[in-house]
Design a protein around this nucleic acid. Structure first.
Length: 156
DNA sequence: CGCTTTTGACCGGCGC
DNA sequence: GCGCCGGTCAAAAGCG
């Protein structure tokens, strides 16, 4: 469980391609966006026997290259690692993460560049359909203050 | 106690 | 038809 404390980008419910890319401590450079909307919900598959999964499940995928020493960058959501495989081109293992939300089927995979181990390629698959609690938490105090200020202005 | 992480095994698709 | 690869799931263990 390594949950770093770093809030960065926050994808809304249906908008993330536009201004969803940002917030990197060191400096991001490459941002690849691939959009393909299709998802066949299949949540009834088990491992060795009867897997009921469809083939059309491409969701908008966002590749994010970030310069960081840390493999996992916390974007504000909770991720549960569900697998790790080694890649041929990179002599480093690729980690697969998934959003722990019940209604959120977002997947994320992180891979390190063989050329530069300090670069991590984070690929997001799908969009979150739930508010970012972490971001909300961070925004909460500010929101409250804003509300307060607005109230004062209105009152006057 | 709950949650997360870790390793191995297995499936499905594709290539040749 | 067989082999290979990538991807995912499952169960158990560890830690807060």
């Amino acid at each position: 469980m390594m949950m770093a404390e770093a809030h960065a980008t926050a994808g809304g419910a249906d908008e993330l391609v536009n201004g969803g890319a940002s917030a990197v401590s060191e400096g991001s450079s490459t941002i690849v966006v691939d959009a393909s909307g299709e998802e066949t919900k299949a949540a009834n598959n088990k491992k060795g026997g009867a897997r009921g999964k469809k083939k059309k499940a491409s969701r908008p995928r966002f590749a994010f290259q970030t310069r960081s020493e840390n493999d996992i960058l916390d974007d504000g959501y909770r991720w549960r690692k569900y697998g790790q495989k080694a890649v041929k081109n990179s002599a480093y293992p690729r980690s697969y993460y998934r959003c722990t939300h019940h209604t959120c089927n977002v997947k994320k995979q992180v891979q390190r560049l063989a050329k530069d181990t300090s670069i991590v390629v984070t690929t997001y698959e799908g969009v979150h359909n739930h508010p970012c609690e972490k971001l909300m938490e961070a925004l909460n105090p500010i929101l409250r203050q804003l509300q307060f200020l607005t109230q004062l202005t209105s009152s006057s």
